[in-house]
């Protein structure tokens, strides 16, 4: 079981007739942390969107198997409720909806899906206060409208808060480190790292090695032109940091 938690087999994806992901295969086992590094435009965000089920992508070939199920046939919300969480590179603003209400709604739909009773209001409040505190999120930000007027860093912290609250089995972090200042970066990275356990897996998409110093991946993949050109241990990240992607065939 552990080896086929997420299995991407020969995946090719087009956007408007342009091939973005080209014959990609990738397997993530339970409890493993994988990192994907690659230059801009290499298709990293496309991969995270395809995994989360966003519209607008045409899967021309391949299969994605998640926990023994065909992921492609599932709706985005079903994927979410089955444990896939995408920390957005650009979190979306929803005017008029408070942050806390949004998180509660998400948690409830998650619990409902898993056949759990709605969480007691007091219990929820305690939980969200506790998690916010870890991430250094002031309580008044919970009462604000979701991401409306949040700085880039505030938005990213808020993504991390949702991750902590929803406890996904596969967290996809799409450049969660961008937009964070040094201190916030440390807090967010360390907090996310602390959620690691033998059951939960992570796919960390990043430009920079600095995030991988705090969230130590088991495997690093170098992503160029829509497919993995090399995989290895954390040392691969160091190599990219010093030499760039040129060796891996990136023309840029």
């Amino acid at each position: 079981m552990s080896n086929n938690f997420l299995n991407i087999k020969s995946l090719s994806v087009k956007v408007d007739d342009k091939l973005i992901i080209n014959n990609l295969s990738l397997s993530i086992g339970r409890g493993e942390v994988h990192a994907i590094m690659g230059p801009n435009g290499s298709g990293k965000s496309t991969l995270s969107n395809v995994l989360a089920g966003k519209d607008g992508y045409t899967i021309v070939n391949g299969a994605i198997d998640f926990s023994g199920e065909d992921l492609i046939s599932l709706e985005p919300n079903e994927r979410a409720n089955k444990g896939i969480f995408l920390a957005f590179q650009y979190p979306v603003e929803i005017p008029g909806v408070t942050n806390i209400n949004f998180i509660k709604t998400a948690l409830e739909s998650n619990r409902k899906y898993r056949g759990l009773e709605p969480i007691k209001p007091g219990e929820f409040l305690k939980l969200i206060k506790e998690k916010s505190k870890i991430l250094g999120i002031p309580e008044d930000r919970l009462k604000r409208q979701l991401n409306v007027g949040f700085s880039g860093g505030e938005k990213k912290r808020n993504e991390a808060l949702q991750l902590l609250m929803l406890e996904p089995s596969l967290a996809i972090l799409d450049e969660t480190d961008s937009g964070l200042d040094v201190d916030a970066f440390k807090i967010v990275a360390d907090t996310i790292n602390s959620t690691r356990n033998k059951d939960n897996s992570m796919l960390v998409i990043t430009h920079y090695q600095r995030l991988l110093e705090r969230i130590k991946p088991d495997i690093v993949h170098i992503f160029v032109d829509g497919s993995i050109v090399e995989s290895g241990g954390p040392e691969l990240a160091n190599e990219v940091e010093s030499d760039g992607y040129e060796r891996f065939g990136d023309a840029k």
């Binding site: 989360a52 089920g53 966003k54 519209d55 709706e75 985005p76 919300n77 994927r79 979410a80 409720n81 969480f85 995408l86 957005f88 979190p91 979306v92 603003e93 929803i94 949004f102 709604t105 998400a106 739909s109 998650n110 899906y113 949702q162 929803l166």
Partner: peptide, 12 residues
């Protein structure tokens, strides 16, 4: 916005 909500578990 729709996708963001759906990604958090809400149906359409």
């Amino acid at each position: 916005q729709l996708f963001y909500c759906q990604q958090r578990g809400l149906n359409e």
